[in-house]
Design a protein around this nucleic acid. Sequence first.
DNA 1: CATATTTGTGCACGTTTATGCGTGTTTTTG
DNA 2: CAAAAACACGCATAAACGTGCACAAATATG
Lengths: 265, 265
Amino acid sequence: MTDLMVQERQAEILRRLKQDGRVLAASLAAEFRISEDTIRRDLRDMAHAGLCERVYGGALPVSQGATTLTQRMSVASERKKSLALAALALIPQRSAVFFDAGSTNLAIAEALHEDLMVTAVTNSPAIALMLAEKPLVEVILIGGSLDRVVGGVVGARAIEAMSVIRPDICFVGTCGIDADGGLSAFRLEDAAFKQFVCGRSRRVIVAATREKFDATAPYAVAAAGQYHCLVTEPGVHAHRLAPLREAGCEIIEAGSSEGRKTGRD
Amino acid sequence: MTDLMVQERQAEILRRLKQDGRVLAASLAAEFRISEDTIRRDLRDMAHAGLCERVYGGALPVSQGATTLTQRMSVASERKKSLALAALALIPQRSAVFFDAGSTNLAIAEALHEDLMVTAVTNSPAIALMLAEKPLVEVILIGGSLDRVVGGVVGARAIEAMSVIRPDICFVGTCGIDADGGLSAFRLEDAAFKQFVCGRSRRVIVAATREKFDATAPYAVAAAGQYHCLVTEPGVHAHRLAPLREAGCEIIEAGSSEGRKTGRD
DNA sequence: CATATTTGTGCACGTTTATGCGTGTTTTTG
DNA sequence: CAAAAACACGCATAAACGTGCACAAATATG
């Protein structure tokens, strides 16, 4: 291990903290060939700067439960995370991807692999914030008036801003999926925005958890034939998926059929 | 090693900095066959010009210091909170307020009182997310390409989006305050955006912690006379504030003059 | 041409910083 | 509750640092 300067060492500690989820004072001292006292001083400083949480024996990432901001984001439940992993496989390198506002799409953004280089467009500040931490992603934010129910920007200005962008892939959020496989939204402006974005995108993908099939919302967004792929969980009744299959919509079940992707790339 | 002129030597140092990610004062002195004092002077100059970050033992690239916004948020949050409370008092009901990207302005947004009804405009997704939690605030998001160093949207599209908005108050962020009280930024596009927003706002307010007075950044944003109010901490040297007072800039020291609630200090 | 002025450099000095060690305290664990 | 591990604190030291000063070379000025 090369002799590192203080800032380099602390950056390396921070890197391992993110990678491994924890660091141990003793093993760090051994690796860096310095005393544990110095490591402890480092960890103390970093904790004081809010970069980690000090614990007996080492340190943990601060993201474990702290900030109000990241708190809201970590609603990515285990189920949504597995959904997100399946959806990720649909994103090719160097594509332009639109992320519609919504917690499921936020989970996809969170799960984005660090070495995926894409242009990401979103109308959601939370998703933008998440994507900003992926070094290879160029983040384009759609501006306009923020709808706090939707959690994203909708309305005329948002549509205008989208009109110069043609995404390769669009992850559209949905509030409910009706019996015919149609998507719907709780807000009129949101529905209009989703419609517009779907119309401009080469490939429209819906990632939806099981309970979306039980929910209905007043404003129609897209019929079964108007989106190309549905990523969902196992356990959705077959007769709900049938109209989608008929309409030519590809259906991916997150936990089960995920291995199918590994054949070729 | 051939004898090099100052500029040549500094260019070579910069080259190695990019190549190796670090330089050591001692080894540079040995290679160039000059004293460490001279190397230190070089590094000091380069750091002052924003070309590197000076550390004990050598220097690191500036990109290392360009941390993501979630990190900057947590630094010195207590101090920023008191700054934010002082800044809040400057916001009238039902005004249109622009929040520039930056951790200090994020603290202001966080401290916004629940019963304050304003239209808030911001180019920062983090600030937008924070403001979305204040029920009476209408949030307008400026769209465009996100600069992850700035933590906000800058560039031509952002300026275009701002051109239809005329804020009553603008909280502009700054990376450094020079001896004449001028504001500066680390990024060219950011500086241009800040300039534009300041020019459109009725009242421009800068909230800056103490250490901003020790920092300099390459791109000029506004001279002392071009903003109306500075909110800062107690303990800034009087001779640094003097040029601001002369230029007619109101100066508020958070903690000291804030005492509307405590009467006196 | 002679004389200031500026600039780059090295040296001496006192100061600050990073680190390791000893000592006593706190926390964990069996 | 007792032993072991981890810890905080003070101290010592060496390296790195900033500053003031001297000197030489380059440059400007009369």
